[in-house]
Design a protein around this nucleic acid. Structure first.
Lengths: 210, 210
DNA sequence: TAGATTGTTAATCGATTAACAATC
DNA sequence: TAGATTGTTAATCGATTAACAATC
């Protein structure tokens, strides 16, 4: 809907607002001011208002923001109000965990199949989803018009898997392999190693400072 | 070792350098210039040099950076050259996946036990690690001097688990529950929901723009 | 030495914060 | 209407980029 370029920092804060508004709504809160929201999230009121105004004016002067309305707006901005079909490439531990994990199904992301190279895994099922031969990956994406490809395969094959999925018309790639995937389609890299090493960094620094 | 305050943006880039240097080293590359490294990672040479100089001068004028040395320096900065003991709180799908996932063991992070409230899970084992009653969480941390607490429990209990672990002397918390944990000890929040919704955002925006 | 590339200071750019007029 | 709080413009701050002297 929006036409201005929205900075990456703003986009990264949107899910945080969304999660918090969900909690407020569950607690029966109708209305929230930028000031209150800022305090609850550790931001400034200015920042909150600037963020929302990147996408349009969702508030009401003298009153604040309607929690329900604001949440629905952010839901629409993040496009999580839509349904997505997804496949998991790499039926190992992470792939299996992602497939079992309910959190995405309930947000409209439906895993329909897994892919692997291992003949021992091909033909089996994970959470009732079939594990298929990776050879048929591109054709499957075309035939079933798959939206999201989730890469949980080894680092060395991640980029070529991404290329083949993008070539087959996938809409976006969610990558768990420890490489920064580059693609013509949108990519989100989840770097668990980066996260844990940022934690050990902080732990190490803490020891010295304290 | 360092004494200056290093910005969050710099710290977040360090694991990326580390991962890339690991690949360069595997490919037998001895030396790399800030310019080459910048191109490979999609940064600028200035930024690369600025980043490294937050922690000291690791390069050599007229030559560049020694890949092996630089990687070891970053390894030490991120404190991933040390050994850590860890426990997983919440023996569900994510907890199980994290426990099976080898990537952390090889980086010196050793999961020694899991905790849960479910009597059906308590007493069982995941990847040969015992699942214990969460009632004994604090005492276990004290007795075994556990470094890292990995939260893979429900959102509603995540903060109180963090509080109890911090109280028992844990050094850092790695949180997978969809809340921003606040603690007196260092915390890293992994928000899978934020990540996937940033992907759907980009997919949605792509459709409009193209 | 000459060439190359770092380390570091200065300039620019963008994001955050502050201020205030608009308005519910 | 008066009070409150947004939307938005202007000021500040911090991070990125550019420039260049130091030096291998």
């Amino acid at each position: 809907m929006e036409f201005r370029k929205v900075s990456d920092a703003v986009v990264k804060r949107m899910p945080r607002y969304y999660r918090h508004l969900k909690i407020l709504e569950e607690h029966g809160v109708d209305c929230v001011s930028s000031n209150a929201l800022a305090k609850q999230l550790g931001l400034t009121a200015s920042q909150v208002r600037q963020d929302f105004n990147c996408f349009g004016g969702f508030g009401q002067q003298g009153y604040g923001y309607n929690v329900r309305k604001l949440r629905r707006e952010i839901r629409s901005i993040l496009a999580i109000d839509k349904e997505y079909s997804a496949i998991v490439v790499g039926a190992g531990n992470i792939g299996t965990a992602i497939t079992y994990f309910g959190g995405f199904q309930e947000e409209g992301i439906h895993i329909v199949a897994l892919f692997d190279v291992d003949p021992d895994l091909i033909g089996k099922a994970v959470n009732d989803k079939p594990v298929l031969d990776v050879k048929g990956l591109g054709q499957y994406i075309k035939d079933h018009d798959i939206d999201i490809g989730i890469i949980t395969a080894r680092r060395s094959v991640a980029q070529q898997l991404a290329d083949s999925m993008a070539g087959a018309g996938i809409k976006g790639i969610w990558n768990f392999a420890p490489v920064d995937i580059v693609s013509k389609v949108p990519v989100e890299n989840v770097h668990l190693f980066d996260s844990i090493s940022n934690l050990t960094y902080k732990i190490g620094k803490n020891k010295i400072t304290d």
